[in-house]
Design a binder for these strands. Structure first.
Length: 409
DNA sequence: AGTCCACAGGAAGGGCAGGCGA
DNA sequence: TCGCCTGCCCTTCCTGTGGACT
């Protein structure tokens, strides 16, 4: 006998919202086109770079080891997308011609995926079908397993490490050295490394020994200008929205705003997508300039609020101390001031008091996240310290306060 | 020129949790 | 069960530093 399921709505408003949503026609034809992970059919204004990457990786088709490659360029300049497309094409050609090429793409910034040497190796092993525990084994055992597994047959393995600077910053460059030595240990397979980084001076920060054995080829991706961003947006908008939803003016505005932000194509796509969402939510069938302005603010706000929400309690306490000092009109907030205020806060709220050394690191992390500015200054006879200020506007600050105040007050 | 301040920030290591293999 | 390994968060100890002051 079939069981009957009882359906009832808990709240009349919810029901109405869902009903209304169902009855409305979306302005989006395919929203996925505007996400960062989408690979478009044509990549605009990157022909030269794609040709360069392809020629460097081409020797893999004859089982030679392609040169290690380093790709530099700031956020949203198309590095990842170009590499992914070249790998796609390479895999296709390899398959057609029955050539054994294995390409592995790993984003080193993804938490719990490849943010330590162990996890990177575990992830690589996972990609070639060997499962290892999340922790517990010595790192050299993982290296051995990886080397042995790929050397079982004649093949070329191309490992792409995106945001490689994040991993090097965390665990040092020793692992890169290990990978450069890998080919001398392999009999049948060849391995080549492609590193992608936002840090334009990344190679300068590497150990000379690593640099000499690694940096064989380099490609730099320059930021897009407003005209180039416009071409990219126009192409994506055609697929993402129904006809007439986006005007040329809107595309130009998104392109111009993103071009101001260091020619970031991701930002341009985000602007268009969020503006579309805002327009749709307010029942419009066209995106207006006002929607783009709102989207611009919303993206910043969402980013900061998400960062603050996910901060550990101790970092939130440090941020709250900075906020309180700012509110009280402190002209120049120094590390010592923050630490004193933080101690008071801990006493009142029952939080464990960490050392000043640790708080100094937490201040550095908040600075990295862009929530505060912390500049090292010297006050001569009165010491060397950091001058700290909030890096968020008043309206965002109000939102942030709503999140943190209830925890400590 | 030397002193001194208030930290910055590197290095080493402790303690805990989670996990493996013998 | 025990020894060993890693990750993570943290402390302790230490050296380095820019520039006002003497």
């Amino acid at each position: 006998m079939q069981q009957k399921t009882l359906i009832s709505f808990s709240n009349g408003d919810t029901k109405e919202i869902f009903k209304k949503y169902l009855s409305e026609k979306s302005i989006f034809k395919n929203k996925k086109v505007l996400t960062h992970s989408y690979i478009p059919k044509k990549i605009f204004h990157r022909d030269k770079e794609i040709t360069q990457i392809s020629s460097i990786l081409a020797p893999a088709l004859k089982y030679y080891q392609p040169s290690n490659l380093f790709i530099y360029g700031s956020v949203g300049t198309g590095k990842t997308i170009c590499v992914k497309q070249v790998l796609n094409d390479l895999n296709l050609i390899a398959m057609e011609n029955k050539i054994d090429i294995k390409t592995i793409y790993i984003n080193c910034k993804l938490k719990k995926v490849a943010d330590t040497e162990y996890r990177l190796l575990a992830q690589l092993l996972n990609e070639i079908g060997v499962s290892v525990p999340d922790t517990g084994l010595p790192t050299d055992v993982l290296y051995r397993k990886f080397f042995d597994e790929i050397d079982k047959k004649r093949q070329v393995v191309i490992i792409v490490l995106d945001e490689i600077d994040a991993l090097v910053k965390k665990v040092g460059d020793e692992f890169l050295y290990n990978f450069t030595r890998i080919n001398s240990e392999l009999e049948r397979a060849n391995v080549s490394l492609v590193g992608i980084t936002n840090n334009l001076v990344f190679s300068n920060e590497l150990d000379a020994r690593v640099k000499s054995s690694l940096g064989e080829e380099e490609i730099i991706f320059h930021p897009y200008n407003a005209v180039q961003l416009r071409d990219i947006l126009e192409d994506r908008a055609k697929e993402a929205f129904y006809l007439g939803v986006v005007s040329k003016g809107i595309i130009n505005k998104c392109a111009a705003l993103a071009a101001q932000e260091h020619g970031d194509a991701r930002r341009a796509l985000d602007l268009l997508r969020v503006a579309g969402e805002i327009a749709e939510r307010s029942g419009k069938d066209k995106i207006t300039e006002e929607d783009v302005d709102l989207a611009d603010q919303k993206i910043d706000l969402d980013h900061i609020i998400e960062s603050v929400r996910s901060l550990p309690r101790q970092s939130q306490a440090v941020l709250y101390s900075v906020m309180k000092l700012t509110e009280e009109g402190f002209e120049k907030i120094l590390t010592g001031d923050v630490f004193d205020r933080y101690k008071d806060l801990c006493k009142r709220s029952g939080l464990r008091v960490l050392t000043q050394r640790r708080i100094s690191d937490l201040i550095g992390e908040l600075d990295m996240l862009g929530i505060i500015n912390a500049k090292v200054i010297s006050k001569g006879r009165y010491g060397r310290t950091r001058e700290i200020s909030l890096n968020i506007t008043q309206d965002i600050l109000d939102y942030v306060k709503k999140i943190i105040s209830p925890i400590f007050d």
